[in-house]
Simulated scan of single mutants.
Amino acid sequence: MRTELAIALPPGYRTEDVLAFHSRDAEAIAEQVGPEGLRKGVLLDGTPVVLEVGFKPDEARCTVDADGELTPPLLELAREALLNILGLRIDPAAFAAFVRDDPALGPVVARQPGLRIIQSATVFEALTWAIIGQQINLPFAISLRRTFIGLAGRRHTSGLWCYPEASDVARLELEALTSRKFSRAKAETLLRLARLVADGEVKLDRERPVADFVRELLAVKGIGPWTVNYALLRGYGYPDCSLEGDVAVRTAFHRLLGGEARPDIPTAQRLLERYAPHRTMAAAYLWASLSEQAG
C-alpha cells in the first residue's frame, strides 16, 4: 500500500547534505540516492517499508510504500522516520545565533550556514550503526553494515533491502556475524542489545526522558558513553550530545585552536561545555570544519 505526503522544508535547506549522508554505501542495497531525491528501505513494526523523497524548493514530496496495510500507527512511524532522514529534528538557527561571536566555531558557521544533523531512520538503526562502526575505518564499517542488513533485514517487493528491527537481529546466531568479519565483541554487543530491545528491557521510545534511555544503555555490556551520545545524535536528534570521546571532534578542536597536541577527552569535554545546550550542533560543525580543511 502506498500513500503520499508533503513535508515543509525551511529556507536555506541543504539538500546536498541529506543526499551525501544517505549515499555512503556505493552498493546502495538499502538506500538509493539520485540528484533530486532518495529511496530508503526500513522495517517498521515488522513491515518492509520504502520511503521515497523528492525535493522541491520548499518541500519534500514523500511516498510511503509498505508491503502490507498502511495503518495509521505505521504511517506515523514512517513520518517520524522521514523527519529523521531529512534532518528536521534540530533547527540550526539557535546554534548559529549562540556562536555568532565564538572565535572557533563562529567563522565555520558563517561559511556553512544551515548545516543540519541528518539522522538514521530509527533509533535502533543509529545504535547498531554506532556499534558496527566503532574503532574501524569507514569503508570496513559500511561493508559490515551491508552484511548486517543482508543477514537480518528483509527485501521490499521493490527489491530494496530494509534495515532490520531489533526482533530481526535478535534471531541471529553469534556465528552468523563472527563468520562474516564481525569481531566477537562487536557481534555479542549487537545481539545483546537487540535481544534486550526485543524483550522490552531496553526501550527506544522517543517520548521517554533522555536520562532513562542513557541509564538503560550504559547498563548494557559493550555500550559506552560515545555510543550512547552518537545514538542520541543520530537517532533522537537530541540537541545537547557531548562527543568528547570522538576522535574527529578532538582533531577538529586541535586544528581550530592550535596547540602542540590534540586535546584529550577531559579537555575536549571542557571545550564542549561552553556550547551547551547546543553541543550536538557544535559536533556537527567541528566535523564540517575537517571537511573544509581537507578541501
Rank of each mutant, 00 (worst) to 15 (best):
R89S: 00
G224V: 02
T178Y: 09
P225C: 05
L271V: 02
R262I: 12
E4K: 14
T47D: 09
R111A: 15
T47K: 13
R79M: 04
R2H: 09
L43C: 14
C241R: 05
S179V: 04
A176P: 06
L74A: 10
E59W: 12
N229T: 05
R274P: 01
R111P: 09
T3N: 08
A126V: 08
L204F: 00
E292G: 12
L138F: 12
F213A: 00
L232I: 04
R234H: 14
P164W: 09
R155N: 11
A252M: 05
L218G: 03
L271E: 01
D17W: 11
D212Y: 04
L256T: 06
A194M: 10
R180T: 06
L271F: 07
R195M: 01
L70Y: 04
A268M: 02
G258Q: 11
K186G: 04
F140S: 15
L177D: 02
L172A: 06
L83E: 13
L290E: 10
L232W: 04
E173Q: 14
L172T: 05
A141L: 10
R234M: 14
E31H: 14
E260G: 07
A152S: 14
E59K: 15
T128A: 08
L290V: 10
A130S: 15
L44N: 09
V99P: 00
R79V: 07
P113G: 01
R171D: 10
E31L: 12
A110K: 09
